[in-house]
Every structure is written in C-alpha cells, then in structure tokens.
C-alpha cells in the first residue's frame, strides 16, 4: 500500500505540474496584486480606513513611544553590563528627563560593581527603571485624549502588566538576597 501511495504521490505532483504550466491565466499570482490595480472598492475602503486609524495618535502617544524606545535601550545596556559585554560609552546619550532612567553615575556604579554587589545594584536599578516605565504608562493614561488608539493602548497595557509583575518579582529577589 505504501508503494502504491508513493506512485500516486508522484502522479499528483505530475498532474499538479501540468495544471501549473497549462493554466497560466491563474498564474503568476504576484501580478494580481499590483497596488491600485484591480483593487476592489472594498479593498480601497479597507486601506483608507487603516490609514485613517493611524492618524489618530496624539502628541502624548508619539512621545510615549519615542521615550519607550530610549527607555528600553537603557535596559539593554544594563543587561549587557550583567553579561559583561557593554561598551564603555553606550548609553551616554540617554535622555535624563525620563522617569526611572539611570543617571550616568548610576550606570558607572553598576559597571564598577562585582559579584553580589553587582546583583544587588542591578536589581535595585532595574526596579527603578521598571517603575519608570509604569510611571510613563500612568502619565500616558492620565493625559487627555491619549491611548485611544488601540495599538498604543495594547502596548502600554502590556508594558504595564509586565513591569508590575517584574517589579514584584525583583523586590522578592532583593529581599531574599538581603536575608543571606
């Protein structure tokens, strides 16, 4: 039975090949999807609605997203320090006016510490850093007209839930460490 099946498989592939070459009007499919060409009214409506949903952002939304990128970049620097692979000058240009951001001195302190001191500093600073993200989400949500866009709303909600859980976890870790 298995041998027969193989034979049929070959036949199916062969027939498929014939159909593929014989009915060229259905192929190549890439030609069908030229923009603005053959686009149905419904599809045109779809793209115009998608576009207009993107112009819904307020300044606070854009600000939040921009700051969150810089904020996350610093977390990456901290993690790189933990792996011992940070470059000396990375993070120098971080904006200092964001909540939770580590000062250059704090980053240097972290880079200079070793062993369990490093672990403690790392957790302490990472809690500070995470709390900054929570504050930024709170600021966003307390700004009139902000986070009405569903994508921003979803992202900010996820950041919020995640950071709060992480903060709790890190606090517990710090506590356990200080009991040692």
């Amino acid at each position: 039975m298995h041998r027969n099946k193989t034979a049929y498989l070959i036949a199916v592939v062969f027939v498929a090949g014939l159909v593929g070459t014989g009915c060229s009007s259905t192929e190549p499919v890439t030609e069908i999807r030229q923009p603005q060409q053959d686009m149905s009214d419904r599809e045109a409506l779809f793209w115009s609605n998608r576009e207009s949903s993107r112009t819904n952002y307020t300044e606070a939304d854009v600000d939040f997203m921009t700051k969150m990128i810089a904020h996350h970049a610093q977390a990456l620097v901290m993690s790189a320090l933990a792996r011992g692979s940070a470059h000396q000058h990375s993070g120098r240009q971080q904006a200092a006016d964001m909540p939770g951001m580590l000062s250059w001195e704090q980053l240097e302190e972290l880079a200079a510490s070793k062993g369990s001191d490093f672990d403690r500093s790392y957790l302490t600073f990472m809690i500070q850093h995470h709390e900054g993200a929570v504050i930024m989400v709170q600021e966003l949500f307390s700004t009139n007209g902000a986070a009405l866009d569903v994508e921003i709303f979803q992202l900010a909600s996820e950041i919020n839930a995640e950071q709060i859980t992480e903060i709790e976890r890190m606090k517990q870790m710090l506590e356990t460490m200080s009991h040692k």
């Binding site: 049929y8 009007s25 259905t26 192929e27 499919v29």
Partner: peptide, 19 residues
C-alpha cells in the same frame, strides 16, 4: 495544485482523496 474558482479566490487545493 492551484486553480481559480468561481468566487475568484486563488486556492491551492490538496484533495485528501487524490492522496
């Protein structure tokens, strides 16, 4: 195997029976 059906959908059908 690909074909264009009546609803103008581009479909790859894999027929269990053929298999």
């Amino acid at each position: 195997m690909r074909y264009t059906d009546n609803y103008n959908r581009k479909v790859r059908i894999t027929d269990a029976g053929l298999y």
